[in-house]
Computed example of a mutant assay.
Amino acid sequence: MVLPCLDEAAALPWVLARIPRGWRAIVVDNGSTDGSPDLARELGATVVREERRGFGAACHAGLTAATADIVCFCDCDASLDPTDLLPFVREVHEGEADLVLGRRRPRGRDAWPAHARAGNLALARMLRRRTGLRLHDLGPLRAARREPLLALGLSDRRSGYPLQMVVRAADAGWRVTEHDVPYLPRAGASKVTGTWRGTWQAVRDMSRVLAEPPAPTPAPTPGGTTP
């Protein structure tokens, strides 16, 4: 379980208490100043330090540090419950899908600001035109096998990382599925979509990813073949 973290001390106890039994929590500290790394260690998580700022940089550092066959990603702000990943992992493990995403369903008016929701919807439509995938959300809750993810050669280290993962998976012929998950009001202020400026930056990063041409030689699918 990869948990990118930047000043999430208020949320860490809630999040780490919900890590399914037997799973390894990897908290990737991306420059916290509120004691998050020490707290995560006290709560039993493995802590990885990523000096380069950026959501993608933190996620990829966690992916690299992971050792399990299946890797999950989840925000560390208490907006998403890690236990919701259990059916995602079963679906990947049983070979029913290669990448499983969570479609966020807000619980409460403050869970997902209107500007962030609008930006996400626009990007989902752009993704559909680019790949044909009929997804409704590009949220952070997801599961896939580690080695095939690394083989995708993900290069974005900012807000475009989650989208680049989906685009390159689609180009490689992966089976991508989506399931509804509750989306709760986060603890603290969002570093990406909490403001119009942050949302605009995220949309710009993701638009750049969508403008990339398809890879000439797709990465192998998790089953070991190329389309």
Rank of each mutant, 00 (worst) to 15 (best):
A187H: 11
W14M: 13
C74V: 14
A116K: 09
Y183S: 07
R129L: 14
G194Q: 09
L80G: 08
A189Q: 13
T226D: 04
A111G: 07
H93I: 05
L133C: 01
T64A: 06
V47Y: 01
M126R: 00
A65Q: 13
A111M: 07
A124C: 09
G132V: 01
P213I: 15
G54K: 02
A202Q: 13
P113G: 12
T225E: 15
M126W: 00
R134Q: 08
A219W: 12
T33H: 00
P106T: 09
A114P: 05
R53I: 01
A202T: 11
R158P: 04
R146G: 05
T199K: 06
D34M: 03
P182F: 09
V203R: 13
L184S: 05
D180R: 10
A215H: 06
A151W: 05
G44N: 01
A61C: 02
D77C: 10
F88I: 05
R168L: 09
R158Q: 15
P162E: 09
D75G: 10
S32V: 01
R52F: 01
A66Y: 06
G35L: 02
G108D: 09
G224S: 08
G102K: 13
R125E: 10
V47P: 01
A11Q: 05
P213Q: 13
R175K: 08
L184Q: 06
V176H: 03
C74F: 12
P227V: 12
T217Y: 14
C72P: 00
L141H: 04
V48C: 01
T177H: 02
V15Q: 02
A187R: 14
W196T: 11
T195L: 06
A97M: 13
V181M: 04
A144Q: 04
R52A: 03
I19W: 04
W200Q: 11
R52C: 01
G224V: 11
G35A: 05
G56S: 00
A219G: 14
A61M: 01
D77G: 07
T217I: 15
L86R: 14
W196A: 14
D34L: 01
L101P: 06
A45M: 02
L80T: 14
